[in-house]
């Protein structure tokens, strides 16, 4: 199953790419995607973004533009062609 993953700000620097298309095995959740990135793309990713079952403040994970906290958190199920964004924080623009 293909998903599009985008990395913003510090994560862009950390991963070295703004966007990746990843092939995941069947019925993954957002936590599986984080594990996949940690194991296959850049070690240390998981530690940066989550703490146990919690998304570390002030990180933000968006699934198709919806914040994970307002879906099912790290257990949010992913579907074919979903777009997932990892950001260390959404900043300000006054």
């Amino acid at each position: 199953m293909k998903v599009k993953v985008k990395f913003i700000l510090d994560y862009y620097k950390f991963i070295g790419k703004h966007e990746l298309i990843l092939n995941l095995s069947n019925k993954p959740k957002i936590i599986d995607l984080i594990n996949y990135i940690d194991n296959n793309i850049k070690n240390g990713f998981k530690e940066k973004i989550i703490n146990g079952n919690e998304i570390k403040y002030p990180n933000m994970i968006l699934i198709n533009g919806r914040r994970a906290e307002f879906l099912e958190g790290l257990n949010t199920k992913l579907n074919e062609n979903d777009e997932i964004i990892f950001s260390p924080l959404a900043y300000f623009a006054l």
Partner: peptide
């Protein structure tokens, strides 16, 4: 830095 975030939402 807000550009990508606003777009994502």
């Amino acid at each position: 830095v807000l550009m990508n975030m606003t777009n994502a939402l």
